[in-house]
Each structure stands twice: as structure tokens, then as C-alpha cells.
Design a binder for these strands. Sequence first.
DNA 1: CAGTGGTCTAGACCACTTT
DNA 2: AAGTGGTCTAGACCACTGA
Lengths: 243, 243
Amino acid sequence: MITRGPSLTEQVRQHIKQLIVENGFEEGRIPPETELAADLGVSRTTVRDALSRLEHEGAIVRRQGAGTFVNPHGLRIKTRLEEMWSYEEMLKDHGYTPSVKVIGIDIEPPAPDTAQALGLEEGQQVLAMEKVFYEDDDPVVLTYNFVPADLIDGEVIPSDAEAPIFEFLEQQTGNQLAYYLSEIVPVLLTEEWAELLGTEPGTASISFDETGFDTDGRPLVHARSMFRDDLLRLGVMRRKSGG
Amino acid sequence: MITRGPSLTEQVRQHIKQLIVENGFEEGRIPPETELAADLGVSRTTVRDALSRLEHEGAIVRRQGAGTFVNPHGLRIKTRLEEMWSYEEMLKDHGYTPSVKVIGIDIEPPAPDTAQALGLEEGQQVLAMEKVFYEDDDPVVLTYNFVPADLIDGEVIPSDAEAPIFEFLEQQTGNQLAYYLSEIVPVLLTEEWAELLGTEPGTASISFDETGFDTDGRPLVHARSMFRDDLLRLGVMRRKSGG
DNA sequence: CAGTGGTCTAGACCACTTT
DNA sequence: AAGTGGTCTAGACCACTGA
């Protein structure tokens, strides 16, 4: 019944997740691991791995000796900060139907912080992309992405920039984005930013400053994103460490 | 050689972490899992679990078919947002030697958002605790904690409030904090906050608004924390989901 | 005391990278 | 082809919860 495609563990995870959102478990109680394993015809280890992911997502809570339970609060989390997403995805998860507008694309010398983040030498340039994500006519997210010009293979046209940045990087540079190191910085919106975000200058906002690396630890992109706090709020689930 | 106390997996994790920070691996290459297992006298599964935790912390990178490697960038992360910590711990990780000052303790009616977050009925009160964390004479963090008064067993004296909030809750209510749901909110500092944080009113700042729950999903505490961005910056590592 | 999740083992096979 | 991490199995025993 459960076989091909993604890993068994992932299939089991999705299967259980499905049942959770459909309210398929009585009183939020998830069956014992041995029972799930027998029902699905997989080993208990596989079930446990799947449950561990769901626990990590905040979808369930496990209590030793007592059982495993649906976590109604965890299901409220829309955006898991510790995961990589495209802003389209993120906005969809919030119930929006987003659109993208590329404000500008340019090859230019990097700002000092960008040069440092990307480990660029004097004289090396970056491809700068400025985008705004909208929900209907409301701007929600403003992003700047800076990619070392050396990495880009061919010519770049504005429509390329509409793709999520990791797709863009894979297509234009052949490198895969493995992780971001991100900082959360409070800022006052400048006039330029405020106008693009359709709000007032001087508004307090979050700036998400991050550098993306490939698996070899090479920096591929430096990015800065600003949000309309009234339309999009960042959330995170915080647990004890070492699970 | 590796035996008692914490779990085997945790001991292996610490052992490898130790070697990483001591630069005990040539060229940042970590030995094959089978070799580690044989050397430490544990199963490969145990080694893999330990490595998974280190990967999750950002300390290492695993590349199928190639090997496991130290991640120098990941080691830079001081504060992992998705983990629960006490602010003392957090500041120590940043190289500070923090101290705490309890500004005030009071039993009072909850603000509307606090009442909602804690699911309180009309008339129920909260224990409010206001604290500032200092590095030397510089205030770095300002926190407000609100605990339902019903949960508190005995009398509370100011020195009790100096303990980390999860210790406080365990001692005063007997309940264990399992996780927080947190939101990151940009704010302009009010005069009161600015004075306590030793900075100017109107400065852009992060407000960390969170509710803490026990394993049964009961809200135990509602909290709000403000930071001196120039002294303490929140960081997070973002990876692909489903690992 | 029965039932649950937590830890650990030993081993098989697969997918991928490197030589 | 050899070596690495990725997935999965079957089973043992422990720690904790709740009736």
C-alpha cells in the first residue's frame, strides 16, 4: 500500500499528517508506534522517524509512557523560521495568493557588507535583484538579492529573476543552496523602502539579513528582506535542545 | 570509556563536538560513521543520531557518498532561535557575564492580549514579573513574564523571580515548560522601555512575544522581551525542510 | 503491572561520490 | 570499483505513565 517515490519515512509522515489535519484520530490521540508499524507494514524505526519529524514540526507531542498526541497549538504555526522557503510558498501558507514584481536588475559593485558576506575581492561585482511580493495590490515583502557576478553563467533577463532565488541560483550558476545564516535586525523604514512597501517612512520593521551557502560552505547569495508587519508576522516554535 | 549519565548518543555528540572545537579533525573531515562506531564501541545508529544532532546545530555538513565535514560557518551561530534558553545562558554564549535585576513583581489583572494568550476568564489575575539583564552596567534584555495567579502554589518573593522562568515555573507551579510559540514583532521603544534599556525612545527594536505551554498544551506563561540590537543580535540557521 | 515511548544493537541494502 | 552516507529492518531492553 505504501511503496514508491519518496522515502518510506516521508510517506508515513505525510500519511499521518493527513490524518491529523482531517481530524482522523479520536481525541487527538495517535495510535501506539507498534500499532502504526503493523498497520502500515513498516518497521517501528520508520514510524518513529516519521513521528520525530512531525514532532519537530510541532504537529504532535510525545509523552513517554503515556502516548503520542496531536498538538493543536503547533498546527497554528504558518512559517517555520528555521526552514528555507520561497516567499511565494510562505505567503500561500498564510492564505494569500501572491504575485511578484521585479523592480530592478543590475550588475554593480557590492556594498561593503555584501562584499564581506560573499568574500569578494576588490573589483568583483554582484548581480543585484530587487523584488516586491504582493497580495492583491498590497505589497507584503521587499527583497534584495546579491549574487557574485562571477558565478552567473549566461545572460540574465528580468523574467529569470521572478523565480525563487534557489531555483534561480541552480539554473544560472549550477550550484545548490544548502542553508542560510540569517540575522533578524530591527530597522526604521527609509522613504524608499516605505514607498515600495506602501507604508509610512519611520515605521518599525524587521529586516531579515542572510547569506546563503552551498554544501561546500561557499557563499552564493547575500539577501535582505523587509516585511509589512501588519500583514505578515514571523513565528517560531522553541523547544528544549538536544532532541 | 563511554558509559554512564546522559544517553550514549548525547555522549557521542559531545565527544565529537569537543573534537570539532579543538580542531581535532584534519582538514575538517570527520571520520566515516563505521569508523567512529568502532572506535567508540557503539553502534553505527548511535553515531548517526549524534551526527544528526550536530548537523541540526549547524556544526557539521553531511554529503552522501563524500563524507562528513566540519561547518565553520555554522559554528558562528551563537543563539539558535528555535531552542529554549534562559537569557543568562544566551548572554554567556555571546561571551558576556550577565547579571539580573528584578524591576518589579506584582499581582494584577492581565492585559487583554495576555488574558487571551493564557486563556483566562474575567476576573482571573496574573503574576507579573519585570526583569532586566545586564552585561556589566549595560542593560541588554528587558523581559516581562505573566503567569496565571491560579497556578502559583505559595508566596513569591523577589529573589524567586531571579531564576530562569522555566525553573521558576517548575518550583512555583510544579508544571514543566515544554515549548514556546513565539512571534517576532518590530517595535519602537517607548520612553519607559528605552530608559530601562539605556537607549533612546523611538529606537527600532525587536519584541519577542511568546506563550509557553506544558506537554498537555496548557499555557503557563505569556512573555515579552525586548533587546538592545547593538549588543545582542538574533540569528538562525535555515535549511531545507524534512531532514 | 500492562502499555507506552526512549535508547541501542547488528546487519542488510541502496544511492551517490570519488578514484 | 571502493568507500561514503541514506534508508530500513527486527528485535532487545529501559524509563516512565496510568489504571
